[in-house]
Nucleic acid binder design. Structure first.
Lengths: 347, 347
DNA sequence: TCTCCCATAGTAAGCGCTTTCTGCCCCGGG
DNA sequence: CCCGGGGCAGAAAGCGCTTACTATGGGAGA
């Protein structure tokens, strides 16, 4: 039925081993033989059997990419960059975890089952001990299997020492810069619509925000900070609801920061609905600088993360095409992008 | 080293065959035996070897998803929906073709090599005979291999009869509705920034547009139509450049239609830069109704395609979980979404 | 001219699973 | 009491490839 290695071998009048060697190219084969084999491959329209090859070689050419949801451009951009970096040697298996630790574990098991060559895990980690342990175990198992695990936008700390590489995001730094920008414009009462409470990204961004406040003596006590902060998913709706809630708690707000751009857009929508001008009455800022942020009105002030470059780097690390950073972890910088949604508060 | 079926079998004091049967569940196994096996699996932390299983069973649990670029939300949404629909039985291999026929063929070959269970090919097809033939051949090969091929947003016509299922988009219909909307508002000189010239989606949307014009006696001759149409990629920049070009050719335009939302946003940017008000001076419309379109200012009039539902359907068809539509093809409707970027032209 | 060795090619033993074919045992019917 | 058959489990033959290990031939060095 299907053409196999043996068929090609027969046609080229060599052994199967030789054909295999020509195709994988990791063993010397005389030029004449090689051309003969290649011709046979061509004539028979031979396509190698991936599973058979993976079984024999004990590794596949699949690379897992775990994301919250590829439909979200934040993850879509990273997934795309990883995939593109793989070229046509490796295939990217993308898995939507929806941010659920269980599903993350499930997919890691499936990738283990596939004997994936590498796995890139993007986005926040959930910060609970049980999950951390389960995750570490699974990652250890993967590593033991020869699968290179690379964390992208997630702290390496949660993983077993040495088994993992990480490209981390300057979330804390970015959060700090953003709030400093607001403070330097003259804002004193700044609301914050944060992400889900138990995630690393949420925590880091929020810590940066609070560090900036504290540095300017604006923090207030914990109660005060809590009053100006609401948590919710990284969605537009969360920004919308959060802004309404914050306005309710503290009508004197002059600025609201969103945990990401989608949240910021939701904040804008809520403010507009309340008849407030942006940035005249209230300034708004986001995080990530996704493509649509520049086209929003007003154009969103935000923090740019070089997602594409970082993801490409993660992919290269995953494939062992690039030297690992010192300590196995690497930090990509966050850059403030000041646009029209922030301005000095009204006097 | 690694735990294998045989290890589990030994521990459960059954044969490997029995373990395999318990795990795949397609053969009667006595309840007592089953529990014993499951216990052994658990105790040994056994993870089945995917490649070995795929080799023996001659099919893998991979499903290919071909997209132009997952970073583009249009494709990201579809890829996400397909992936989610697969559940945790099958894995989605997503491939960025960048719209290139060669890369599309390359990835189809890679998926053939993996013995993929199914392949979902999204987006436009390039309309050249050589490509059509090559593509048909590859698809035929896949089908012969037992891989179900489903076209999503691409006409089934290009594929070999019967070997393929298709979920098509109402591009022509949507294009027609959109332009009819503009005409009914009073527009007579309507520019069109189309997609790349040789793609099915581009052609269908443009045909719909022109059908609407013709139905109202507005088409003019071919030269006239050509003068009001520019082609370019489906990008924001293309919209920006295209709008400038159109304005140059025909300063009296009162409306410009973009081939998709990103293009429309580019058109908006160009118009704004020219000091034109939207929709006061010029109306703008897009296509696809991606999430960001509602947040643009003014909110974009566009055509909604139920991408998520369509993609989920495609995935179900791919897995054989849903009855195929009559004739193997199915058409999802396009719906006009009139928002603030279109209005009656100035008198 | 004779060895020795390197460059190639072949042999064959798996990789870990699925599945067909058998076989066993126990039940019900004759 | 015997026979037939159904329900389960096992044996074993691959699935198509990779990769030690082995074999061979001819050129280089002595």
């Amino acid at each position: 039925m299907a053409v196999t290695l043996a068929d090609v071998a027969a046609r080229a009048r060599v052994s199967a081993a030789t054909v295999s060697r020509v195709l994988s190219g990791n063993y010397p084969v005389a030029e004449a033989t090689r051309t003969r084999v290649l011709a046979a491959v061509d004539e028979l329209d031979y396509v190698i059997n991936g599973p058979a090859s993976a079984l024999a070689a004990a590794t596949s050419d699949l690379v897992g990419v775990l994301v919250n949801d590829v439909a979200d451009p934040f993850f879509g951009i990273m997934a795309s960059a990883v995939q593109s970096e793989l070229g046509s040697e490796k295939l990217a298996v993308v898995c939507n975890t929806g941010g659920s630790p269980e599903r993350e574990l499930t997919y890691l098991t499936l990738l283990l089952r596939q004997r994936a060559a590498a796995v890139v895990i993007t986005g926040s980690a959930v910060e609970t001990p049980e999950y951390a342990a389960a995750s570490a175990a699974k990652v250890g198992r993967l590593a033991a299997n020869g699968t290179q695990v690379v964390l992208l936008g997630r702290p390496a700390s949660a993983a077993p020492e040495g088994s993992v590489l990480a490209v981390e995001f300057g979330n804390r730094e970015g959060g700090r810069r953003l709030t400093e920008h607001l403070i330097s414009l003259g804002h004193r009462r700044i609301g914050y619509v944060a992400g889900p409470a138990d995630r690393t990204t949420t925590r880091h961004r929020l810590e940066g925000h609070r560090a900036a406040l504290a540095a300017h003596g604006l923090g207030g006590d914990a109660g005060e900070l809590g009053r100006l902060t609401v948590h919710g998913p990284y969605t537009r709706k969360s920004g919308y609801d959060g802004a309404l809630e914050l306005l309710d708690r503290e009508p004197g707000l002059t600025a609201v920061v969103g945990s990401n751009d989608a949240v910021a857009l939701g904040i804008c929508a809520a403010l507009r609905e309340k008849g407030l001008d942006i940035p005249g009455d209230v300034s708004v800022a986001g995080f990530d600088d996704l493509p649509f942020s520049a086209d929003a009105t007003p154009a969103l002030t935000t923090v740019r993360l070089p997602l594409q470059e970082a993801a490409a780097r993660a992919a290269r690390l995953a494939l062992g095409r690039e030297e690992s950073p010192a300590g196995g972890r690497d930090m990509v910088p966050a850059e403030l992008v000041a646009r029209a949604s922030t301005a000095a508060p009204r006097a």
